[in-house]
């Protein structure tokens, strides 16, 4: 017997990251902006997508991949509004690029302007997995408390955008908007922030305008490269 130490020094997720990068590259070339929506359960990811689909109707072609541990309830909610495919993880706490690739194929790989990936409701595990998105969007609802960003630093650090949801409930809650934003900006100073209510639709037009701008930016960057 002889003993050998083999030096590897590699990120164990390197291969998955490369797959995610290839997916991002492919969708960039066809002009599809990919967003990964992450939050706690019940923050209102599906409600935000419903409101977004109504606002963007006739302006942008959008599709949704929606992840949950079980049931296709979210897909049923969204189906009357947009092409949607449910990704059922069967217990896994996050989505991975392989599930996204499968869902994308099941949708028929259409040339959307925007593809939303609604992640499993969880502020921990999804932070560690690149799904080939151009933008990671964290949602934070007024009913969750304003101290969340500091408690889940990885999620907010790896996000590009923060959408505050359920702001119509602010008069009834102790949620301090400024404290939440300050906490989030300490972790990620470059966050683009939106204040929304899917019920009153407050802030939804600004959010959708942002989506259009981001999509135009992507198309312009692909054309120049």
């Amino acid at each position: 017997m002889t003993k050998t130490t083999i030096r590897v020094n590699r990120d164990i997720q390197a291969e998955k990251r490369e797959r995610a990068a290839a997916f991002r590259e492919k969708l960039s070339r066809q002009g599809t902006l990919v967003l990964n929506l992450v939050s706690s359960p019940g923050t209102g990811k599906t409600a935000l997508l419903e409101a977004t689909a109504k606002e963007l109707k006739g302006r942008l072609r959008m599709g949704v991949l929606v992840g949950d541990l079980a049931t296709d309830r979210d897909a049923q909610r969204l189906a009357p509004l947009v092409p949607v495919e449910q990704l059922t993880t069967g217990g896994a706490c996050h989505l991975e690029i392989s599930l996204v690739e499968q869902g994308w194929q099941k949708l028929g790989e259409p040339e959307f302007d925007i593809l939303f990936i609604e992640n499993v409701g969880n502020l921990v595990c999804p932070a560690s997995h690149d799904l080939g998105e151009h933008l990671r969007v964290s949602l934070l609802s007024t009913t969750e408390g304003d101290d969340k960003p500091g408690k889940y630093p990885k999620m907010f650090r790896t996000s590009d955008t923060l959408v505050l949801t359920k702001i119509d409930l602010l008069p009834y809650l102790p949620f301090r908007v400024e404290a939440a934003i300050e906490d989030a900006r300490l972790i990620q100073p470059d966050l683009d922030i939106f204040h929304t209510s899917a019920i009153t639709t407050e802030g939804i037009p600004d959010w959708c305008e942002y989506l259009e701008q981001q999509r135009q930016k992507l198309v312009a960057s692909v054309q120049t490269s």
Partner: peptide
């Protein structure tokens, strides 16, 4: 400090 890295693997091999 943000990655999960495999540094090295020590094995035994039959000569």
């Amino acid at each position: 400090g943000d990655a999960f890295r495999l540094l090295d693997v020590t094995i035994d091999t039959e000569l």
